[in-house]
């Protein structure tokens, strides 16, 4: 296991270098002088010259890359062109919103998807199975931005059950303290506004969670069917063990392995999908931040956001791989 971990970590180095190279080149691929691109249309020639000097744009490309890497390793991603705030600070204040949303979406997917998948597999070809099949097929085909609009239309505008956007209402927000940035956690710590915060989270989390939910239902069903047809399950049944025990003790444990992998992979994908969801729900996370960055031509923001998401994605995939290796029965049982 240790050797495997080391090998995986080592294998990450070229990928991380590649990511940094790609993101570094990002600014240089945009037509025009990067300094002008960064300063915006109102910059004076003197300011452009100063920034060119500061960014080392007059030096060869490899030196610039070296500088970029040095800053990156120090966590210095530059400043926003738009509001001049350091990228690092903005990332720090925004990532909890995105993570809370993504985690809630995954939670919905797990809490609904896995039971639904199990049910479908256990009662193959029943109504429940057909429903889950149709549900998962429609779910993966769903444009999330459209789903978001439909949910707002239905639950926020027409029924007025849930708020249409934002993380907390103004009334509750006035006395709400941001401690961790995870509002659910913050509200528990402070012992207030939990319902408020949860209500704001429901629609965006449903929107973002639908695709992973559909995928998880399908994968769980498939994995369960596979496991239920295995010899040891048949043996267990033959031994006269109750159906419940067979399913929960024997089958589920083994079926969950591919499911865990999918959960991890989906989490990374969610960070990409968050751009659309956050835009629709005015959710102050990384996704809407990157999108605003693109609209404002605020390239340091886009650069910082993209590199952050890519890093998280890589780390999550690594964790998934490692936990897979850790849990793999072939390694455990042989």
């Amino acid at each position: 296991m240790g050797a495997y971990t080391a090998r995986r970590l080592l294998g990450l180095i070229p990928v991380l270098l590649g990511i940094s190279l790609l993101v570094f080149l990002f600014l240089h691929l945009i037509p025009g002088d990067p300094a002008v691109v960064l300063l915006g249309e109102r910059a004076t020639p003197e300011q452009v010259a100063t920034l060119r000097e500061k960014m080392g744009l007059n030096q060869p490309l490899y030196t610039q890359y070296f500088l970029f890497m040095r800053n990156l390793l120090h966590g210095d991603l530059g400043n926003s062109v738009f509001n001049l705030l350091p990228i690092r600070e903005q990332l720090a204040s925004r990532w909890p919103a995105t993570f809370e949303l993504a985690l809630s979406s995954i939670l919905i997917a797990v809490l609904v998807g896995i039971p639904l998948g199990i049910l479908a597999a256990v009662r193959k070809n029943s109504m429940a199975d057909n429903f889950s099949t149709i549900f998962s097929l429609v779910g993966v085909s769903m444009p999330v931005f459209w789903l978001g609009l439909l949910l707002i239309y239905l639950f926020a505008v027409n029924l007025q059950w849930l708020p249409p956007s934002g993380r907390i209402s103004v009334e509750a927000g006035a006395s709400f303290k941001t401690i961790t940035g995870f509002y659910l956690l913050d509200s528990i710590i402070q012992g207030r506004s939990l319902a408020e915060v949860a209500a704001h989270l429901i629609l965006p989390a449903l929107t973002l969670g639908t695709i992973p939910l559909a995928i998880l239902t399908r994968i769980t069903r498939g994995a369960m069917l596979e496991v239920l047809s295995q010899d040891y399950v048949r043996t267990a049944r033959a031994k006269g063990l109750g159906e419940r025990v067979v399913i929960w003790r024997h089958a589920l444990k083994n079926a969950l392995l591919p499911v865990v992998t999918i959960i991890g992979l989906q989490f990374g994908t969610l960070l990409g999908g968050a751009i659309l969801t956050e835009t629709i729900f005015s959710w102050p996370g990384i996704g809407s931040w990157i999108y605003e960055g693109i609209l404002n031509r605020d390239y340091p923001v886009v650069q910082g956001g993209v590199i952050f998401v890519a890093l998280v994605f890589v780390v999550v995939n690594l964790v998934v791989d490692l936990s897979y290796a850790l849990l793999d029965p072939r390694i455990q049982y042989r």
Partner: peptide, 18 residues
């Protein structure tokens, strides 16, 4: 590996931004 290190939607958006 590098391409797959970016969520697809994000990569597409970043390319169009350029």
């Amino acid at each position: 590996d590098i391409m797959l290190a970016f969520p697809g939607t994000l990569l597409a958006i970043a390319i169009v931004a350029v």
